[in-house]
Each structure stands twice: as C-alpha cells, then as structure tokens.
C-alpha cells in the first residue's frame, strides 16, 4: 500500500499561442486506503487529473509520486506494469471487452498478472451479485450489471488503487447508488485506495477527501466523511 502525491500538475494541449490548459498547477496528497472524490463541472479537468494519477497520460508539467516513485521516471514498460499490478480502472462506458464473456473479462487481469483463477472469478461474480452470469456476453447485461462486472474486473487482481471515472454517469439512480456503495464497500473492506471522478456531489458523503476542480485549478481540498451524507440522493447537487 502506498500514498499518492502530486505537485504542481499541469496538462495542456497545443503550443503557444494556441495552448489550451486543461489542468493548471494542481497539488495534493492521497493516503493509502482513502476514498477520494474529485468533483467539478464538465470540462473542469477532473478526468485529466485521474488519467495523470493512473498513469494513463503524462503531465505537461509537475510530478506524480506513488509510494515515492516518480511516474515521470517510468518508461512505458514500467508504467504498463504499474497499471497491471497495482491499479484497477472503472469507466463511465464500462469498457468491457465485447468479444470476451463476462467470466473471461474477469480472468483477463488475472491472466495479465500471471495469477490463477482459484475460484476468484466465481467469488467476485457472487460479490457483485452476478453469480451464474459468467458465460454471458457483455451485451446481454444491463448497464448496471455491466458496471458491476467492470468493478469486479478492476478489483479481482487485488490492486492498491481503484480509479473510477464517472462510474455512475450512464446509470439510473438506483443502479448508481448500488454501484457506488459496492465500490466503497469493497475498497474499504480490502483497504484499497479509491479515487472517483464524478459529477454527483451526493457521493461526497461517502468520501474521506474531496477535491473540487474548477477550470483546471484545485479550488478545494477538504476532508470529508461518512457523516457528510449517506447515499446518492441524500445531498443536493
């Protein structure tokens, strides 16, 4: 388990005078095992921050350190290995592999990490409430079910960090609540760091730390907590 620290993170596209700054000098610290929620309007830069923290993108300026390791010093091979071993991703559009069955989607991270199934796939399907659906194709599942498969896929190889980008963006209220609760419960149960980008301020009540981004700048980094609310519908947007 490790902390994530980021300092003066910036990301821009293009060169002057047409440079478009998406993230502008953001710094922060995420402790191991924390549930961090990143909120902000569309286009504020929150997904960009998540991509930089998860090694999916490289900053134009600034540093990301995971357990003291500067990601800028890692080549593609090391960065890929880092994502493979220590991270799990959940996306808004689920991004399951359509040509693999549900069970094989779960086996994929195990296979990449050289881990045996050992009943993990069945176990995780049960934990996300999809027992008996392993041989189904992703297209046959509802949105909520697909997102639960995506959560299981993100956690099955026991990564240190879960990065979720708008995981409830395509779901109805009921499913959204279920997905967030599931993510929160599973991460807390296994002491995994969860960083979730969302529009829904309702999730804030579950988070340990809240990062608010506006126009590429971090305008608020606040301790939050379960006391702040319970459930998706509890807080006003």
């Amino acid at each position: 388990m490790a902390d994530i620290a980021f300092e003066s993170l910036s990301r821009w596209y293009g060169e002057m005078p047409w440079r478009r700054v998406v993230l502008d000098g953001v710094s922060g610290h995420i402790r191991a095992g924390e549930f961090v929620v990143v909120v902000g309007r569309s286009g504020s830069g929150k997904s960009t921050l998540l991509n930089l923290l998860g090694g999916l993108d490289r900053p134009s300026q600034g540093v990301v350190r995971i357990g003291g390791t500067d990601l800028a010093g890692l080549g593609d091979r090391e960065l890929t290995a880092l994502r493979r071993h220590r991270m799990g991703f959940v996306f808004q559009a689920y991004n399951l592999i359509p040509t693999l069955s549900v069970a094989d989607n779960l086996r994929l991270p195990l296979s990449l990490n050289g881990m045996d199934d050992d009943g993990r796939v069945g176990d995780w399907l049960e934990r996300v409430g999809l027992e008996g659906r392993g041989e189904d194709w992703p297209d046959r599942l509802s949105g909520g079910e697909q997102q639960r498969v995506a959560i299981a896929r993100a956690l099955i190889h026991e990564p240190d960090f879960i990065l979720a980008d708008e995981p409830t963006g395509n779901l109805d209220l009921e499913n959204a609540e279920r997905v967030v609760s599931l993510l929160d419960a599973l991460c807390r149960a296994e002491q995994r760091t969860l960083i979730m980008v969302t529009h829904a301020r309702e999730v804030v009540g579950l988070a340990d730390q809240l990062l608010t981004i506006r126009e590429g700048r971090l305008v608020e980094a606040a301790e939050a907590g379960p006391a702040g609310g319970s459930g998706i519908g509890a807080a006003a947007p």
């Binding site: 999916l56 091979r77 890929t80 493979r84 991703f89 996306f91 991004n95 592999i97 994929l108 990490n113």
Partner: peptide, 16 residues
C-alpha cells in the same frame, strides 16, 4: 482502438 485502449489501461503492454 477503444478496446485496445482498455486493454492497455488494464496493463497489457505494447508488445502484448
């Protein structure tokens, strides 16, 4: 390409 991006994100290397 999107499918490939997902695979890269979850740790499949360039060679893989």
């Amino acid at each position: 390409l999107r499918e490939f991006a997902v695979l890269r994100a979850i740790g499949l290397g360039r060679g893989g």
